[in-house]
Amino acid sequence: MKLNEKEVEILEILQKDARFEAADIAKMTGLAVTEVADTIRRLEEEKVIVHYATLVDWAKMDNFTGVTAMIDVKVTPKRGVGFDEVAERIYRFKEVSSVYLMSGVYDLSVTVEGKSMNEIARFVSEKLSTLDSVVSTTTHFQLKKYKHDGMIYTSKQQDNRIVVSP
């Protein structure tokens, strides 16, 4: 699909903040409100715009105990389907939030979310590593999120103390 410059501009605006109204985007792009709304509707129907999401800093919640892990997976691709078949089997697990085909030592990068490190460990040992095509895995647990999808999660606290010198 080939998009024109204004359509790409609309996508870039929505990617930064999906809460913009069509009227606001129209002002930013110089297009008519109906043209912006029609473009967004068409891009949604054609699955160029796949989903709208909210980024939440769960670490700020006192009672949140969730864990995220990034798992590198080495697989043996199958003749005729390559990595697609095993990737599909992996992304169908409810614990999996994303799967990417990667270059380098490992073939797939899998992001998994769970309630505890033990839950993720059970997922890896009982579900992921038992798949026929999976040769090996390496699991990395996220300890702290600094930036995600272009949004910075941590900010330096400003020191408001008065400087006192002798």
Rank of each mutant, 00 (worst) to 15 (best):
R122S: 11
Y146F: 06
R19I: 09
R42V: 10
E119N: 14
V105H: 02
D24I: 09
R41S: 06
T154R: 07
T39R: 01
S109F: 02
F64K: 10
A26S: 01
A87E: 07
K78M: 03
I40T: 04
V8D: 03
I90M: 07
T111K: 06
K115Y: 14
K156L: 00
M61S: 15
S155M: 03
M61T: 14
S98Q: 07
S136F: 03
A87M: 12
T68C: 05
S165Q: 10
S103E: 04
T68D: 06
R89S: 11
V99R: 07
L108I: 01
T137W: 05
L14K: 05
K147V: 07
T29V: 10
A37S: 09
A22R: 00
A18D: 12
V33E: 09
S103T: 12
R41P: 00
N63S: 15
E95F: 06
T154N: 04
A59V: 09
V124F: 06
I90G: 00
E85S: 13
S98C: 00
A87H: 02
K127E: 12
V50E: 04
T138S: 14
E12V: 15
L55K: 11
S136D: 15
V33I: 14
P166V: 07
V134I: 06
A37K: 00
V67C: 00
S133A: 11
Y52G: 00
